[in-house]
Design a protein around this nucleic acid. Structure first.
Lengths: 188, 188, 188, 188
DNA sequence: CATGAATGAGCCTTCATTCAT
DNA sequence: AATGAATGAAGGCTCATTCAT
């Protein structure tokens, strides 16, 4: 095996490969040995790049938060709200497995650190705000309630393992969401 | 007089007291010793009522699924759709912490058994179907897409730790949801 | 195996059996697994009685310090100084192996905690003072220099592995030591 | 020009720098990484000069045994026995820290190889005999018991961490030792 | 029934050692 | 010659589980 040229690059590669494990089994159920095996290195190497299991997990979360921006960046623009919702949903549905795993990892992370103190962490706060900002901008939502509403809906969409199992009608869902957003002005 | 009259009753009591632990720390992070201590018995006793940690956890999930019906049963009836949505949301929000913990436990359960094979389990399928049936009936939704939509929204509402942290405007959300349901017919 | 009746008694028994290991191999070379095997219990049991390897070692040292009093207590009294020296040397020589091991353990302990801060520890200070007090009393030495002299000689006697290997002439040594003590007054 | 002119010279330099580590922490507690860092090279370099940790340690002990002759060689001669004892003690006391570390290292070495088989090793036997020969010659002792006696005393003097901590009266000790040696003839 | 001491497999982590560069 | 990334066996410690009381 040739010597690794870029330490940090390799670190990210390890994180990348670790994601699956943590998502599937959960932090407490993942052993460093199993992880090393899955990733294709020795436990010693893992500890060469990460000071501990917890540190690895934390870096994984931070890394994933970054990666997600790339998912969102793929979204094409459009004049039409319903079209934008549609594309967003389509993107999520196409990556549902990945997104669901993401949710799983985040939940673990939350438990690991306590949900009450979670949002005091810089990584977490930033990630979340970036996410909300993106949503608001892309969907052109300026109102908090509407944003929360859409956000809840989307979170549910990607969190619900039952829905995960089936095909939803992206078109109908888009219509409902777009209408809800558009209607909002009537209720203020 | 014997302390415990009903073996099964006591079993449920133990499960009940175990819920907090599993919800807060996650299956893999809960030790039988810690659990026993939290519940106030010895580990031996725990093993007298449950054959293993996994069995205990499984029974906990089944038990919780039952308990949730009691939450739903508290919901008063109403002619008005928006009012019904409103009451449902209010109920969820009043029990947000409990409901969120529930989500956490289910997540663990899912991972323990693999999400792909999850719905082949009788307990799980039944639970879920009961939940969907209740929603459809209570909100008077006969269409699958609408049901999925509302279900997604609700799942997100109770799963999202960020939303968990803040107060949402139940009123506005109710309006949006009720409108979305009502509007549905236009898009079929 | 019957349940242990006296927790503390058993703890001491474990310490007692541990002594050999630490003396022979040195703290850093003793593994908990090897120790458990030598002692005849499982590692789990070891940790049931001692919170850590270090704690075990510390308790061992404290326990040994106590045990040594029993060795000294066996010494019969005598009017004659040379006789007393003689009996002391004989006792040491008869237990040379044990005493040497003791020295080994103490040295390890010293290194573990840093020799500079060693005598700030209560256990250590007390042990040492008890030892010196006993020597002074038994040999009737009131002067510090003489005591240090005898102490040095004795420490060397039990520390020197070369001397350990051979028989020394207890009689001659006694004469030399007794004379040295008696002579002391001439040099003050 | 190559940085290291003499391979063997550099080896000794590495040993020299290693001494502190082993003396302070004990063989088992010293890691090759820590050693490399302390010495200022990479672990790879360490393994370039020594085939293993154990080999390094063994060479260290042999090297130190040689070095000690230099300490002894510094001793000036004198007609007067008490003066010679006095100078010897003074030398030891001035180098007490170094000498004590030496003792620690030897203890480790002894344990590593088993004290019972220790004197079958050539290095060890030679070292010890050189030491005894020097003592006998310098102090003019021809009798084994006397030599053992003085030897015990000196070993104790440098081994006892308690005495290490304080100042002894070199003058008084010299008097006692010299007298003991001189007196010896009376007791044969 | 209830207890908690005992067990040992398995976890996280370290460390002597190797080897490609 | 020198480096340090990579390895995996082994160490300290935990924990699900059993069982004598």
């Amino acid at each position: 095996m040739p010597k690794i040229i870029d330490h940090d690059e390799y670190r990210k590669e390890l994180l990348c490969k670790s994601f699956e494990c943590f998502a599937a089994k959960g932090y407490g159920q993942v052993t460093m040995r199993a992880l090393a095996e899955h990733v294709g290195v020795s436990t010693g190497t893992l500890y060469h790049y990460f000071s501990s299991k917890e540190a690895l997990f934390e870096q994984l979360v931070a890394f994933q938060a970054d990666s997600d921006l790339m998912l969102a960046a793929r979204l094409p623009d459009s004049e039409n709200l319903q079209q934008r919702v549609h594309m967003l949903l389509k993107l999520l549905m196409e990556n549902r497995e990945y997104v669901f795993k993401q949710v799983c990892v985040w939940l673990d992370f939350g438990r690991q650190h306590g949900f009450d103190t979670l949002f005091k962490k810089e990584v977490v706060r930033q990630s979340y705000e970036r996410y909300m900002r993106f949503l608001s901008q892309y969907l052109g939502i300026s109102d908090k309630s509407s944003a929360d509403f859409v956000c809840s809906y989307l979170t549910g969409l990607v969190s619900d393992p039952y829905i995960m199992q089936q095909k939803i009608s992206v078109k109908k869902h888009s219509q409902l969401v777009a209408k809800a957003i558009a209607d909002y002005s009537k209720y203020k």
